[in-house]
């Protein structure tokens, strides 16, 4: 554990709390992509199957359980409690374009041909693109509530912090995980456009609006 990873994980936790806070206080999941949230549940469940087979640390176990539980809770909020505020007509990204290639990539790039490793690899690739339905929705509507942009910024910061973590681990432990690094760089790259608008508009007190 190093500070980059620790603050990355904290940022990930923060993003989830911001999202739950947004949905429950506004009593609405407007502007949130159900597809992206459903992909995160898939990511966490497929990756954290090792909860039953390997123990890393109490921290690791507690975080894994939290990520699975909170992502399922968010789906519940969107699908059951605040269902009328969820508008599927603007959440139109085709999931098969994401899931299909991730299955293929996992079959090619993995650390072992067994169900756990294949699912782990699949989850890494899927996580790297899971935000796309959300960003696509943002692009379509051209604007977002400020709280939603804070959620995305915290999620993007989590990914960005994992990059110095890998650099640090390379020098301190000789540890390199090429699958995580490649997928992580792609994932962080997807946030660059968003971050540009976030820094130049939202943090200057303006509304998040994309140029027409």
């Amino acid at each position: 554990m190093n500070i980059f990873r620790f603050f990355g994980d904290l940022s990930h936790l923060a993003s989830i709390f911001i999202l739950i806070h947004k949905i429950t206080t506004t009593r609405s999941c407007r502007g949130i992509s159900f597809k992206t949230q459903a992909l995160y549940v898939t990511v966490f469940v497929t990756r954290y199957l090792d909860l039953f087979t390997s123990y890393v640390s109490l921290y690791n176990t507690v975080m894994k359980i939290f990520f699975i539980a909170s992502s399922c809770y968010i789906l519940y909020l969107m699908r059951v409690r605040y269902r009328p505020t969820n508008d599927p007509s603007i959440d139109t990204f085709r999931l098969e374009y994401l899931v299909g290639p991730c299955v293929v990539l996992a079959l090619i790039f993995n650390y072992g041909y067994n169900p756990t490793e294949l699912l782990w690899s699949f989850s890494i690739f899927l996580e790297s693109v899971a935000i796309l339905p959300q960003l696509f929705m943002l692009q379509r509507t051209g604007e977002a509530e400020t709280i939603t942009t804070h959620y995305l910024a915290a999620l993007g910061a989590y990914r960005a912090l994992y990059i110095p973590n890998w650099i640090y681990r390379y020098f301190s432990e000789g540890y390199v995980d090429p699958i995580s690094v490649t997928a992580g760089l792609v994932q962080t790259g997807l946030y660059l456009d968003f971050f540009y608008v976030y820094f130049t508009k939202v943090l200057q007190g303006q509304k998040f609006e994309l140029p027409a």
């Binding site: 994980d9 000789g174 995580s180």
Partner: peptide
């Protein structure tokens, strides 16, 4: 040297 198939990251 650590083995990347020991997944200790979240």
């Amino acid at each position: 040297e650590s083995d990347p198939s020991v997944h200790d990251e979240l």
